[in-house]
Design a protein around this nucleic acid. Structure first.
Lengths: 242, 242
DNA sequence: CGGCGGCCTTGATTTCGGTCAAGGCCTCGC
DNA sequence: GCGAGGCCTTGACCGAAATCAAGGCCGCCG
């Protein structure tokens, strides 16, 4: 991964605090000795929205842990049509093991802080510690499940179901405690309307219209174009098409 | 995985010949001793089109290797809308490690022959042999790449691009030697029109119309509704939307 | 302040693909 | 052979979402 922004701080790497939070980070799998080794080569970075983290077909030379913020994974057709194929929240792991080139782009959707490691270090440790590979395997299986869920949304849901599903997905990722029982939640959208459209396979206008409809139907409120309050969680769920 | 058809033969398991063919099978990762252990508990089976191999939310108690034929992985919404989220060709591995329940359905699209193992046996071996886990990890990464490629098709391509992409994908999987250079290929469609529609997020009628268009434009020929001959590979590729 | 550029919303119109409906073609079993 | 059922094709029509176009809101910078 080539981080195109200057490294913000290469001081004491933060590594694992936030990783532990949701038990999906890399670091918990390592013994203290390995951690120290990794710490030496890792660096914490802060990246502004819109910065490209991994370019398509570009040689990837490091892996990262997302510490905060949201990273969007995109693919494009040659004529410019774009599709977001995944979102990574903290503490997801960023990078494609066992391949020199990435087939996708990764871009900061919000301000993102990252902890990155040289590819070689991670791969060496993966050989030594099956537990690390096991963790990454599990994350990959989760991503596969998520991708397949999303394929159903892309292929079979209407525009309004797509938008409702998107809001639910974001709510659940930002506030993991939210579930059907919750009456309401609120959160900041990590994506612009254009991003949401690219995620849902829609146009900006359609996304906007559907959000307006949810607003006029009192299912959600939106302040500042970014801050969403779900007024009626179960109504939103009903509109997401199961 | 519950195979709902009677086991065809529990004699000498075939295990690995066809797995080796494309280097994605489970078995190559095992040492001879492990292979013998696995052979004792495995069984080869033949499954007819339409048979369900893994039911949604059903307890999965075995894994399988696909030896021949095509398995479709599907997900459904509560109202019956369905989406195919993946196709497995020989020698893919079938089953979701580390989860008791499957979130998807698996169904034989063609006649399928399988070699299945008790879940417990595979998981024990995975612990003993990191090389096995490594293989499964790699297949999972491939499936993730494929799922993401397909998300672009679902979200951003037109109906005619979808159908062209589908034909190319099938051609490449059935005859791995096919590439851009090839002028033409021919193969049997492993899916019905209804399946293709569920795979592409379209209706049967739209799939049929697009196939007709490809036929009248002399890009393909179709015999018996199943046997497809691509007359002009590069023309098909151009229609697939890159 | 005022103008510019991003981002979002809204309306009018078009179009692609879905829906509804009819009919053709095979295969299989009688 | 003949009829039934499954699968596929074709046509007419309709509607959801795309496209085209205009304008609003807001933050930023001169």
């Amino acid at each position: 991964m080539t981080v195109r922004q200057d490294v913000h701080s290469a001081g004491i790497p933060v590594l694992c605090q936030s990783c532990e939070a949701r038990h999906r980070g890399v670091c918990g799998a390592l013994d203290p000795e390995q951690l120290v080794g990794l710490a030496k080569t890792s660096s914490k970075q802060q990246v502004k929205p819109g910065m490209e983290l991994i370019g398509d077909a570009e040689t990837v030379d490091c892996y990262s842990n997302v510490l905060s913020g949201v990273v969007k994974l995109t693919k494009s057709l040659s004529d410019g049509r774009q599709q977001i194929v995944g979102l990574q929240f903290a503490p997801d792991f960023l990078g494609r093991p066992f391949k020199a080139e990435s087939a996708i782009n990764a871009e900061a959707a919000t301000t993102v802080s990252l902890c990155s490691f040289p590819k070689a270090a991670i791969e060496r440790m993966m050989k030594e510690s099956p537990e690390l590979e096991h963790r990454l395997f599990k994350q990959t299986l989760n991503e596969l499940d998520e991708a397949r869920d999303w394929m159903v949304t892309l292929g079979r849901k209407s525009a309004s179901e797509k938008v409702a599903s998107f809001l639910l997905m974001i709510a659940k990722n930002i506030d993991p405690a939210v579930d059907a029982a919750a009456e309401s939640t609120s959160f900041d959208l990590p994506l612009t309307r254009a991003d949401i459209a690219d995620f849902l396979g829609l146009t900006i206008e359609t996304v906007s219209r559907q959000l307006t409809r949810l607003r006029t139907d009192s299912v959600i409120r939106i302040d500042n174009n970014r801050h969403v309050t779900v007024e009626n969680m179960s109504r939103l769920e009903r509109r997401s098409g199961a």
